[in-house]
Design a protein around this nucleic acid. Structure first.
Lengths: 100, 100
DNA sequence: AATGCTTACGGGTCACGTAATGATT
DNA sequence: AATCATTACGTGACCCGTAAGCATT
């Protein structure tokens, strides 16, 4: 019932958290504001946590949002590293020198 | 054109890589074999890397697959940790003690 | 013939963009 | 009135399960 956070959601959140502005974040991500707004809501629902205060004009991070921003960078980096690691291993493999 | 690996794909791959058997991995994931098989193919296409040798009867890891399995665990853990970190920060926040 | 991965096919969900709405300055 | 996030609405892509296909033992 509580499935894991997806990379796309986290990427979107990081963009908003860094820009503190949905419009600029959407532009940076190459999407429109509405899907970005919805993705953040979905992530908040998934985690059952409020990540952003957008009461007034300004968008600000909640403590939970601040924590997710910091750990989020690490997590996204780890995902990217895993992918690169596989690609490097493939590149460094001389066809015929298999692990077996 | 080369978008990032998703958590679902990596989770599926780890299951197959650990079981070395699509049927058991699918059962463990609570899905059918076909979507699992397709997800692995999609991941291989995305990374442009062959992760599994399923020529003969047995399923075996390629060097790239082996690398992804090891780094993959770390990455999935980092994603889960980021989520928990946000939830913990929210829980530890007394309503009224905001960062501002 | 049995086992096991893959391809074919149909359906439901999800993510997106455009347009309209609401709220704040 | 202007700015900016959200909700409404329709469409295309994606993911899944069932069924059929194909290869190996």
């Amino acid at each position: 019932m509580m499935d894991p956070m997806e990379v796309r959601e986290l990427r979107y959140f990081v963009a908003v958290a860094e820009e503190l502005h949905f419009g600029r974040a959407a532009e940076r991500l190459g999407i429109a504001q509405p899907p970005l707004s919805r993705a953040i809501q979905q992530l908040e629902r998934r985690l059952k946590v409020t990540l952003l205060d957008r009461n007034t004009r300004a968008v600000r991070l909640t403590p939970a949002g601040d924590a997710l921003l910091r750990e989020g960078h690490t997590a996204l980096a780890a995902m990217a590293r895993a992918a690169r690691s596989a690609q490097r291993a493939a590149r460094d493999t001389i066809p015929g020198t298999l692990t077996a």
